[in-house]
Design a protein around this nucleic acid. Structure first.
Lengths: 235, 235
DNA sequence: ACAAAAGTGTTTTAATTACACCCATGC
DNA sequence: GCATGGGTGTAATTAAAACACTTTTGT
């Protein structure tokens, strides 16, 4: 095949920022890097794009290989292309972020590469420019979650409104009035009330809800009001 | 230098979608591709990332080389990595979009590569997956402009409120009540009224305004209400 | 009977929408 | 003097925010 002459060719990498929620704290999944340079250091789930796969496919494959996880929400974040970001060799990396329910994927999580969940507040230093990737991913999640119902991806398929509220509160590091929160959330038409309750959090129990998937897909791209005072947010 | 063994290396490209406004219509800048494959076909401003530059730098360089334009608003859009997107050779392309005032850059526009402005409604077919890039860029601009004051990048430094309104109307393909529009826009605190008027559009003339750059940078990342009924928008 | 979390309704305030007339000017 | 686009104010409506008490139930 004729090829583009005299052009440089680079390694194309993918790095995945996996956010998880365990019902209490927002966490990030890290592994110990399996090869040089920086072998053994805490790192994002990363790898190289192969000849026969798209970068979207590569991100899914790499996540699956390193953690056993698949089928989760995964979105392209940004491409990092500083010529010196990887000291070994020029590497362009496209970062993706994923959102999962830690408990749901607990059994699926493959421990070959010793993945660990870290609280966002107590993360180790990461290699290369991965700290920057994580900062951008955090901002993107906060930004997007103010308008779109992505945080449901962090919860089990059945969840309670108090659980949902505590998730929003931890993402925005704020406290929200529960009367207004439940009004706002129910007004989206995204939730279907279940007949039974989660009794683990209180004596009285809180009703379970499930997503109305029809409405979820239909309204996903629209602007929803999911948090108080969105106009005052700066990212 | 030791390198990553046995990994594929790909061409890394950049494609730029340049949106421009001439006071009347929202347009896109295209050139006739200067090399094979698809030589002579209408195309985005594209090129290859070099050894010594970041992809952000490459996007600026390529725009400058092909059009003479620099210093405009330029933002990374998305990275396209389908293995067959370029039939010649596996190429990963990072798309950027730019926003400029067509008239302001008219003199700076270099015609070596025969760039032409096309109305978004009457665009020729583009090569590879560039149509998809343009669609995504249009959606991104509409999305972002509903919340952030990016459309000012399409206007001269001095502009009138009717001009601004007609820009919003053409981006959202709608008509907006002028009383509400001017209230909304002035309420942002982004505009400084000038003493003189633009007499070109009417006998009476419309006052010029300029951006308050302090407030512009300060509020750029915040959520602003710039269009009516943002909650009803679907992108 | 009481502690602990769930659930709910109303008032107040703020934001958004709808709507119509006068103004300035060049011809 | 009239046609053309520019500029402005107010009332009505809707959405968001503030706020407190009752319910359930395990101990």
């Amino acid at each position: 095949m004729i090829k583009y002459a005299k052009q440089s060719r680079f390694i194309q990498a993918v790095d995945c920022i996996v956010f998880g929620f365990d019902g209490d704290t927002l966490k990030i999944l890290l592994i110990q890097r399996g090869f040089e340079p920086e072998k053994g250091k805490w790192s994002l789930m990363g790898g190289f794009v192969q000849e026969n796969e798209s970068i979207d496919q590569a991100s899914n494959r790499i996540l699956k290989q390193l953690t056993g996880l698949d089928g989760m929400y995964l979105e392209q974040l940004h491409t990092f292309g500083d010529p010196h970001r990887d000291p070994m060799e020029r590497t362009v990396s496209t970062a993706y972020f994923a959102l999962i329910d830690i408990l749901k994927y607990e059994k699926q999580l493959n421990t070959d590469y010793h993945p660990e969940w870290f609280s966002l507040k107590r993360m180790p230093k990461l290699i290369f420019d991965q700290q920057e990737m994580v900062e951008l991913a955090k901002r993107r999640v906060r930004y997007k979650a103010a308008l779109h119902p992505i945080l449901f991806e962090l919860l089990p398929s059945r969840f309670t409104i108090p659980q949902l509220q505590s998730l929003y509160e931890s993402v925005y590091n704020t406290s929200i009035d529960k009367r207004n929160f439940s009004k706002r959330i129910l007004a989206t038409g995204l939730l279907i009330k279940q007949a039974d309750k989660d009794k683990s959090g209180s004596r009285r129990g809180a009703f379970y809800y499930q997503l109305n998937m029809q409405n979820y897909y239909a309204k996903f791209q629209a602007f929803l009001n999911l948090i108080p005072n969105p106009t005052n947010l700066i990212f």
